[in-house]
Amino acid sequence: MLSKIIFSATLLFSFLTVYSQTDTGNKFNTKLIKVNNKIYMLQGKGGNIGLSFGNEGIFMIDDQYAEGIEQIQKDIKTISKNPIQFLVNTHFHGDHTGGNAVLAQQGTIIFSQENVHARLQGMIAEEKKKIPQEILPVVTFSEDLTFHYNGEKIYVFHVHNAHTDGDAMVYFTDSNVLHTGDVFFNGKYPFIDTDNGGSIQGYIDGIGKALLLINEDTKIIPGHGDVGTYKDLQKASYMLSIIYKRVTTHYINKKTEEEVAQMKDITKEFDDLGYGDGFISTEAFLRTVYKEVAKERSPIDKNAEKNRQAREKLEKMQEKQNSPQENKTPPQNVKGSNDVD
C-alpha cells in the first residue's frame, strides 16, 4: 500500500510540474491574486495557496513545493511582514505540502485531517531520499475544527474519500471565501487519487457538501485553476455526475474500458470547453471513472451472477420434474403363494 502512495504521489508531481509551467517558459513563477481585502490566492508551481492577512498574523492554506517556498515567502512579505502563524494542509500531495518543513522550522503550526499525517508518515518511512520529520502536521482533526483569527471565523472541514482520504476545505465565513483544495479543479478534469482513498462518488459528495455551506456570492479558491464562483462549482458537480452516469450505462451494457475510453460523445460538451486540456486528459479521466464504476458495481455484478446461477439450477430442476418418465413401466400384479386364480 505504501508503495502505491509513493507511486501515485510521484505521478501526480510529474504531472503538476508540466501543468504549472508558465507562458514565459520559466521553471517557477508566482502570482498573487487579491480575492478580497483580507484574502489572497497565490499561484505558482503546484496547488493554489490561500492566504488570510490580518493584525494577528498570516493564516496559510497549502505551500506548494519545497523548492518554491523562498519565493512564496518573498511574495507574502509584499503584503505583510507578519509571521505565518498557522498553516492548513488540504491533503498530503507534495505540491501542497512541500514547504511544510521550512515553515515549521520558522515556527508555523501545521494542521491537517488525520489521514494526511498518516500518509506523510508512511512516505517518510518508505522514501529512500530523506524527508524531514518537520513536514508532518502537529495538530490533526477527524471531522472539523474552527479558528477565530484575523477577525473572522475560519471553518475547516473534512470531505470523505474525494480527491484522497484526507481532504479538507477551508471556509472563511465572514469573507465568504472557500478554499477547496483539490476537490475542485476549475474548468478541468480532476485527478482523483483512487490509490490513496479518493473516489468519484466521494468527490461528487464533497462538492455537494461545499455547495450546501456556501452561497451564490462565495468566491472559491480551487486546488488548481482560476478563482471560481458558486456556478463554477455547480458546473464541476454536473460534469462529474453526468459523465459518471453515462459511463455507468455503458458499463452495464457490457462495454469495455478500452471502448469507453475512446467514446468522444461521453465528454464532448466538456471537451469543447477545454476540460481535457489540463494534465488529466479526457481518456485518462474516462479510464478513472470506468474503473470506479467497475469497483462500485462489483458486488452487484456478483449478486447478479449468483442469482443467474440459481435461476439456471431451478429451471433445470423444473425441467427434470416435468420431463416424461423414461424407462419406467406401471407396476404389475405378481402372483405369490397366497394368490387365488
Rank of each mutant, 00 (worst) to 15 (best):
V102W: 02
N307Y: 08
H117P: 00
I39C: 05
T146Q: 11
A261D: 06
P190E: 05
T194R: 12
Q113H: 15
M239S: 13
D301W: 09
K153G: 03
H91R: 04
H96A: 07
D272R: 11
G68F: 07
I221E: 02
T282H: 05
D182S: 14
Q201Y: 07
T90E: 07
N338H: 15
D271H: 10
F147V: 08
K295V: 01
D182V: 03
T78A: 06
D195M: 10
Q201L: 10
F184K: 00
I110Q: 02
H179Y: 14
P83S: 10
T267F: 04
N82V: 01
G276W: 02
Q106T: 02
I221H: 03
A118I: 13
F13K: 06
Y290C: 06
R119Q: 12
F147R: 08
V177P: 01
V177G: 01
T248Q: 12
K306E: 13
D217A: 11
S241V: 02
M60I: 11
E269G: 04
H163G: 00
L16W: 01
R119H: 15
A210S: 13
S281W: 06
V334L: 11
L103E: 06
D174H: 13
Q121G: 05
T256R: 03
A9L: 07
N186Y: 09
T97Y: 03
R297I: 09
K45I: 07
N333W: 14
I72N: 06
M1T: 11
G223N: 08
G276M: 08
E292Y: 12
R297N: 14
K255R: 11
F111N: 02
A162R: 00
G208N: 14
A236K: 03
E258I: 09
N307V: 13
N253H: 14
K295T: 10
K4W: 12
H117T: 08
D217W: 03
F172I: 03
R308W: 07
E258C: 02
E296M: 13
T329E: 15
F157T: 11
G202W: 00
K4V: 09
T140F: 04
V227C: 09
R297Q: 15
S80P: 08
R246H: 13
T248H: 10
N36H: 08
I300F: 09
V289I: 15
A210D: 10
H91E: 14
D193R: 06
Y155H: 15
F53I: 15
D165K: 07
M239W: 02
L212M: 11
M1K: 10
T288H: 05
G276R: 05
L314C: 05
T97K: 03
L314R: 13
Y275N: 06
Q43Y: 09
K153R: 14
